[in-house]
Design a protein around this nucleic acid. Structure first.
Lengths: 180, 180
DNA sequence: AAGCCCATGTAACTGGTTACATGATTCT
DNA sequence: AGAATCATGTAACCAGTTACATGGGCTT
């Protein structure tokens, strides 16, 4: 149940309401880490309030509730961060497709793999630009924030996908098709 | 619904029963692509049989059913492989934790990040050995198969995690803490 | 005969997605 | 006045996990 820890982490950084948390998920975590919609977030905040991990610290203008982490919540967050990593089963459709490439015939494989490498490359390029913008818009000596971390991870990840996709085609072309 | 396409892909490569498919998931796909237990696989095979995507091609000794892909199944697999990639929401607890690192204080961050980089490094090393074994045990000129692809992806991926984890600490140490 | 691996299935539950629903505020 | 955005919630559904249940065949 990583959702609650993600919420704790975000709230520990900045107190905010459910609406903002939903956007924060979308913007920084949804790319490579985790995702959740508002219909999952609101009930979870309620539950966590009942359990004393978070609390309403302020009520905004239009009935919004600003949440903050309690001491118990901070302790739970730390406990989780240091706990052994439970094997969260992966769900990566891109990698799945690459693994299944060899179920097609070679001409198809070439077209598809090159297309997949191409889209990965494009996303890496986009992120490189985004990173440049973040760096330019932050005064020197100042820290960059989550967005920079996420973008950097994405850039490296898409480069990996691109290179690995090309490597797979090479393998398939030199050996025809795998046997196991 | 990628489960059925994963099954189609595996069956297109080798006809097999539900038990073998479960193991195949565990061994090659469960690391980075997808996962499914037998309780999900058996009912899905039934449904796909009813829809004419797969068929029982043989019945083994102890009541086992060997499945194969039909022409319709092969067409559906190809259609899916060429269709635009639907954004499967990611679920990566390791990356999530790294994103939330800055919610802890600096001494904690140093300890944790170095530990995380260490485990990633170890897994990369293990896979490097595994790759060497695969290569040594395959006659030259012969293709290596799925296992080699998966291992190679894993090696690159864990190296990325390791390097990125170290980069994040550097950033946090030089700038104290991020603001967004 | 006991224990392990092969082999298949169902049931209950939990986490996550999509759809439905409502209302206040701000912008044009 | 109308549209967009802020803001919160519930309900129905689907996918995935854990637990329960059963039996054949192979090895020691």
């Amino acid at each position: 149940m990583s959702l609650r820890h993600a919420l704790l982490g975000l709230l520990a950084d900045t107190q905010q309401n459910g609406y903002d948390l939903t956007k924060r998920f979308e913007q920084t975590l949804s790319g490579h880490a985790w995702n959740a919609g508002h219909s999952q977030i609101y009930p979870e905040l309620k539950r966590m309030t009942a359990e004393g991990l978070v609390e309403v610290v302020d009520e905004g203008s239009r009935g919004s509730k600003v949440y903050g982490v309690t001491d118990a919540g901070r302790a739970e967050l730390r406990r989780w961060m240091f706990s052994p990593l439970g094997e969260t089963p992966p769900r990566n459709e891109f990698v799945l497709r690459l693994f299944l490439l060899s179920s097609l015939d070679l001409p198809d494989v070439r077209v598809l793999a090159e297309r997949m490498a191409g889209t990965s490359d494009q996303r890496a390029i986009d992120l490189t630009h985004a990173i440049k913008e973040i760096e330019d818009s932050t005064p020197p000596g100042q820290p960059h924030g989550y967005a920079r971390f996420a973008a950097e991870f994405g850039r490296r990840y898409f480069e990996l996908q691109r290179d690995w996709a090309r490597w797979v085609v090479e393998q398939l072309e030199s050996g025809e098709r795998p046997s196991s």
